[in-house]
């Protein structure tokens, strides 16, 4: 493990221990500076990332869990059939402002369908969804236009909200920077790598400042650093009072979410 990998693992440990985003960033930057100026193997200088992160938590503490606000998304009794096959049976989920919910389950258990029903893109056979505030949706794939530049995507989404071109571009670039991506280049979406394209996809969904953000496996193609940045961004949005629903199959992230809906067992209601 080289210094960069150690720093990434360290940052992930800090996030998992709920160290405030800005404080974690500051500590990681200090560690990086120390390593750059002093040299040496981070394992010898600081020790294993989990141990050093635990020591930092002892020293600076963690952020208190955000107090959930009013209900932003309430899906109840969602049932969906494709032909004779029932993919969702009486699934329910309640997410409040300042919460992250994870929708988990095996392949084909209806995670994406559930999210599309919550977004109002697919009709269920039974059940209702109530949404309070503006809705943002990041599809698993295909939410971008091959022959447009990232800036043009921002302008297109911004125009939907009546945002002028300049501010839309600036907002898009700023949101992209939170994911560790500089979106200012003249590269068509089709020439972006899979991970960068997914960052564009994600940036578009947060651009309209939604109150409820629905993300369908938003990390596909991400490297470790981008993955950490994504959770940074999600936690920041949660702390700003957004309600976030993430479809995920990466179970190791579940300790960083507030609500879990496991569709494998098709149990009604979310587990808090």
């Amino acid at each position: 493990m080289n210094a960069d990998e150690w720093l990434r693992a360290f940052a992930a440990e800090l996030h998992q221990r709920r160290v405030a985003v800005d404080a974690a960033r500051h500590v990681v930057a200090e560690a990086a500076t120390h390593l750059r100026e002093g040299g040496g193997d981070p394992w010898l200088v600081f020790g294993p990332p989990p141990s050093y992160a635990a020591a930092i938590v002892e020293s600076i503490g963690t952020t208190p869990g955000p107090r959930p606000g009013p209900v932003r998304l309430h899906a109840r009794g969602i049932t969906k059939r494709y032909g004779r096959r029932t993919v969702l049976r009486d699934a329910s989920l309640t997410v409040r402002a300042g919460q992250i919910a994870a929708v988990v389950g095996a392949n084909g258990c209806g995670k994406s369908t559930f999210l599309r029903i919550c977004a109002g893109l697919v009709s269920p056979d039974a059940g209702e969804v109530s949404v309070s505030g503006r809705l943002g949706y990041c599809p698993q794939q295909g939410g971008t236009a091959d022959f447009l530049l990232p800036d043009e995507h921002f302008v297109l989404v911004g125009a939907g909200q009546g945002v002028a071109r300049g501010p839309a571009r600036r907002a898009g670039r700023a949101a992209a920077r939170h994911l560790g991506w500089d979106a200012e280049g003249d590269v068509l979406a089709r020439h972006l790598s899979g991970g960068t394209r997914q960052k564009l996809n994600l940036t578009m969904s947060t651009l309209a400042e939604p109150d409820v953000l629905l993300l369908d496996e938003p990390y596909q193609g991400f490297d470790q650093g981008s993955y950490v940045n994504l959770w940074d961004q999600l936690i920041r949005l949660r702390d700003e009072g957004r309600a976030i629903v993430v479809v995920t199959h990466l179970l190791n992230q579940l300790d960083r979410v507030d609500v879990v809906l496991d569709l494998t067992t098709a149990q009604p209601g979310g587990r808090s």
């Binding site: 977004a119 109002g120 949706y137 599809p139 794939q141 295909g142 939410g143 236009a145 309209a208």
Partner: peptide, 15 residues
């Protein structure tokens, strides 16, 4: 055909 995937999200974005 090419716009089929992006249109639902543009609809959510206010179009």
């Amino acid at each position: 055909s090419a716009a089929r995937e992006i249109e639902p999200r543009l609809r959510l974005a206010g179009y």
